[in-house]
Amino acid sequence: MTPVHFAFSSTFMLGLAGLAFHRYHLLSALLCLEGMMLSLFIALSLWTLQLDSTTFSSSPMLLLAFSACEASAGLALLVATARTHGTDRLQSLNLLQC
């Protein structure tokens, strides 16, 4: 495991841990998700650059487009929950409990 491999793996895992453990705001959760996608972008780009696999270097761009889609859908959901629940606290998303 090279240092760059360790760096993006640990950033991804940190983002995942931050998303999984206690979040106050929906926006913080979305930011953690965005951090995960960012480390995936770095991972794909570095794989391309390290292996000099030129034809694969358009895949980080596709990943960036899809993560932009995901982020915008998440922000739209943020607006929708702010309208229906009045706040973006994740604690208030409690209508569906058993």
Binding site: Y24, F41, I42
Partner: peptide, 28 residues
């Protein structure tokens, strides 16, 4: 990313994400 994941208020988390993106540019 530690700064993003450690659950500060969203402004500061966004600032952390700026740092992550800038440093990612440096790595690339």
């Amino acid at each position: 990313l530690v700064a993003v994941a450690s659950n500060p208020s969203p402004y500061f988390a966004a600032l952390g994400l700026v740092v992550v993106a800038g440093m990612g540019c440096g790595v690339l």
